[in-house]
């Protein structure tokens, strides 16, 4: 019995020994590298969802603690409406995803003493986490305004000044401009960072929400490349004018609005 207890305590002690990350030359915990989010299909839905939902692989857990987003009744109705109106999804228009949405996609971290840059491939987005200064007044941004500080080896980032246009995923889960996000980046070993998020939005939620997932270090050969989402700008009509999607399809694929040339292919197809 005593042996068993001792073993349990020993195991507990080992589990509790915090990983001590390397330091940057400036003496801060080193989060630099290319990171791949282990995001449980959150880009499709932050909640549990079936395989095939929006062509995703599905997820039994999602990333939201408890598997529920506590929307106020009117907001829950709007979530349903938005799911049936995919043209409202800002990522379909190549907009910034916002925080935490952008964190579902790979990124590279560059760290100086005063600023931590998180540079994404997706949407060619980046965010500068300022380690000093305050949130500016009256200034809303897609990615919000990020102010960070260190609590031991954990980077804590307070994200305010969020606009009401970015979303949590493609499943209609939205927020208001009252969104306030607190992110915690905790290195758990050399190749993994635990990512814990606290979301507050008194205009749409009935209580704060927690999200959890992690980032895994990418192989050394990986590099962040350029993603030019808005190339050609020809997808937009599929979102903004879905009712007439079929009418627009050939025309948009084959014409060149830059030159104003006549659309010969569409003409040939009998339009």
């Amino acid at each position: 019995m005593i042996l068993a207890l001792t073993l349990i305590f020993a195991a507990f002690a080992v589990a509790q020994t915090p990983y001590v990350p390397q330091r940057t030359p400036e003496g801060f915990p080193d989060l630099e590298g290319v990171w791949q989010p282990q995001q449980n299909g959150a880009m499709f839905s932050v909640l549990p969802h079936k395989p095939g939902f929006l062509l995703g692989a599905g997820s039994k857990t999602g990333i939201v603690e408890g598997g529920v987003l506590p929307y106020q009744p009117w907001a829950a109705e709007l979530v349903k409406y938005r799911l049936d109106h995919m043209e409202m999804d800002p990522t379909g228009h190549c907009h910034y995803e916002g925080i935490p949405h952008a964190m579902y996609f790979p990124f590279q971290i560059f760290q100086t003493a005063d600023e931590i840059a998180v540079v994404h491939e997706n949407m060619h987005a980046y965010r500068i986490i300022h380690m000093k200064g305050k949130h500016p007044p009256d200034y809303l941004e897609w990615m919000g305004d990020s102010r960070g500080h260190w609590e031991g080896n954990t980077l804590v980032v307070d994200v305010a000044n969020n606009n009401d246009k970015s979303t949590f995923d493609m499943a209609g889960h939205f927020h208001s401009d009252a969104l306030h996000v607190v992110e915690r980046f905790t290195p758990i070993d050399r190749d993994n960072i635990a990512y814990d998020v606290l979301l507050e939005d008194r205009k749409v939620f009935t209580r704060p929400v927690k999200m959890h997932f992690s980032f895994k270090r990418a192989p050394a050969s990986f590099q962040i490349m350029e993603a030019g989402c808005f190339e050609g700008e020809r997808d937009q009509v599929h979102f903004t004018d879905t009712v007439k999607l079929s009418e627009h399809y050939d025309h948009e694929l084959n014409s060149d609005h830059n030159t104003g040339k006549k659309d010969t292919k569409a003409g040939a197809s009998g339009k």
């Binding site: 030359p25 630099e32 910034y96 590279q108 560059f110 760290q111 100086t112 600023e115 840059a117 540079v119 060619h124 987005a125 980046y126 500068i128 590099q223 962040i224």
Partner: peptide, 24 residues
């Protein structure tokens, strides 16, 4: 344009369209 430097990297963060270049 904000320039950041880390060993082996010079990173250009452009305010225009949030473009960026990671230069090794």
């Amino acid at each position: 344009i904000q320039i950041l430097q880390r060993p082996g990297y010079v990173v250009f963060l452009y305010e225009y369209q949030h473009d960026h270049r990671i230069v090794q």
